[in-house]
Amino acid sequence: MINHHLSDEMILAYAAGALSEGQAMVVHCHLEYCDHCAARLREAEALGGALLEELDVPTLTSLDFDDMFAKIEVSEEMQEPLSMETSDTLQERATPAMLRNILGHGIEDVKWKRVGPGIRQYVLPLDLQEGENVRLLRLSPGFVTPMHTHRGSEMTLVLQGSFCDETGRYAVGDIQDADGDLDHQPVADTDVDCICLAVTTAPLQFRGLIGKLMQPLVGI
């Protein structure tokens, strides 16, 4: 049961293709967990489709249907048939398919780096816009972050365990969009390690969970 969802703005920006790559990745992973947001995304995409249909119709200058079709027919012969396979549900896999794609394995095989007592991380090897980072974060049970006030924005998706702060409790599939002057003190509150996927965007800001955790420890 997912309690914390994406905002309409995030859904709209994702539908429009306007999110940064790191943000889009984390949003996509939440969508793998969440039918509710997936349905909202389809609404927003339907909006995009309707707007597309209402656009004006300029003439094409060099593109011609017959030329294009000839090229498609040629490349068709070399094309492998489209696979229609379906994959397991997320419950069976534990790691969102997109994340597994990037890691090459599940979250159980991540090579963690210790950044402080009770906290480990793994920064994803992605080629993102400057200052943007996507990382996996692993908190030991009971880990309490020091209380800090920072500014900035960050999105955090829970993959395992849970954490809670003044805004509520975040369990598997829940997403926290730390946008605004959120001032919180997250605590890993289950007896398993809490693993999160989080994106921080440039310039590096320290408002959300990652900022709280990392800034006093490693001075990012």
Binding site: R42, E45, A46, G48, G49, A50, L52, E53
Partner: peptide, 8 residues
Amino acid sequence: AASSTWIF
């Protein structure tokens, strides 16, 4: 999905 959505 409508074709417009899919193509969009």
